[in-house]
């Protein structure tokens, strides 16, 4: 039943660009790609925030480092995705290793603040990278090349590539969280001191999870830079980290599809509020389109109050209480 639902949704996702072409609304293909990229980024954050209980407020640093790595490779004349994208995972992974090795020794609000501080440092580092545009950003002359006759400039092709990567990442995460490693990480979230007391070097496991999340976030960044054909320091700003956190909380903390639901929910809500005029809403609050974040805030309130397990939790009701 569950599997049938997953396959059904996947088939719909595959058919989506064809349907949009048929009704001549290809704008939505671009938007869907963007949602899928954010779904990947939020899924990577969910791995540490949801499964690992590490409330990292600096995830945009890894997404941004991936975006910049992929962009610089193109700017330096090496557009092959087969080199650029693995590098766009390796650089954030190394960054996560260094940041994690220090910040994972702290707990609670200190961890939130220290990850935020590190991310802001990386943000200012990109602002000062004059060779790559500084705060003006870097415009890409082309998208990454993939070979096999695939042209990433084509919006439908880009969509399918992103979809394939997201599906692969979700499959990977679903294996990981049910394997020995995943159970250890979740148990650390539940009771870290007891994990030490039954023989686990907990810092090591948290750090590995942190690095994996950084790498996956970096890949999302590479995709984002390619989609926009542009990257600027804004991608590393702390509000981006906050946006990813909102997606995870909205979608479902520690649920496999939490990041996906969250990206659809948040970006979908923003899109609807910004581009569609609701007469009743305008009557209630005339400026709502300028303040679409207000709507996001209301949605967050609703989730926290009525669906603490997020959107994914609504689908699970009755399964495990």
């Amino acid at each position: 039943m569950r599997r049938a639902l997953t396959v059904g949704v996947l088939l719909l996702a595959i058919a989506f660009p064809l349907a949009m072409q048929a009704i001549d609304q290809t704008y939505y293909v671009t938007m869907a790609s963007r949602i899928l990229v954010y779904a990947l980024a939020a899924t990577s954050l969910n791995l540490i925030l949801g499964y690992g209980g590490m409330i990292s407020f600096g995830h945009a640093a890894f997404v941004g480092a991936g975006a910049y790595t992929a962009s610089i490779m193109i700017a330096e004349g090496m557009p092959s995705a087969w080199i650029g994208w693995p590098l766009a995972m390796a650089v954030p992974a190394l960054l996560a290793l260094a940041i994690g090795a220090i910040s994972l020794r702290t707990r609670g609000v200190y961890f939130i603040m220290i990850t935020l501080a590190f991310a802001q440092m990386i943000y200012y580092l990109t602002v000062s990278m004059k060779a790559y545009g500084g705060d003006e950003g870097l415009t890409l002359t082309q998208r990454a090349t993939l070979g096999f006759g695939l042209d990433l400039k084509d919006d439908a092709t880009f969509y399918y590539v992103v979809l394939a990567i997201l599906v692969a990442a979700l499959f990977l995460v679903s294996r990981l969280v049910n394997a020995r490693f995943g159970r250890v990480v979740q148990a650390i979230r539940e009771n870290e001191s007891r994990m030490e007391a039954i023989g686990y070097p907990t810092l090591r496991y948290k750090l590995i999870a942190f690095v994996l999340a950084g790498a996956l976030g970096g890949l999302a960044g590479a995709l984002l830079a390619n989609q926009n054909s542009y990257v600027n320091p804004g991608i590393l700003h702390w509000t981006e980290s906050g946006k990813l956190m909102i997606m995870v909380i909205l979608g479902g903390v520690g649920h496999l599809y939490g990041g996906v639901f969250g990206a659809i929910g948040l970006l979908g809500l923003e899109e609807v509020l910004a581009n569609h005029k609701f007469a009743w809403l305008a009557a209630l609050y005339p400026d709502y389109q300028q303040h679409s974040l207000l709507g996001v805030g209301v949605a967050m309130l609703a989730v926290v109050l009525y669906a603490p397990q997020g959107i994914a939790g609504l689908f699970r009701r009755g399964k495990d209480g």
Binding site: R175, L176, N178, A179, R180, F181, G182, V184, Y200, Y205
Partner: peptide, 12 residues
């Protein structure tokens, strides 16, 4: 105490 916990694939 039994084997590595750095297993990422096989369901525990």
């Amino acid at each position: 105490r039994s084997g590595s916990s750095l297993a990422f694939w096989r369901p525990v």
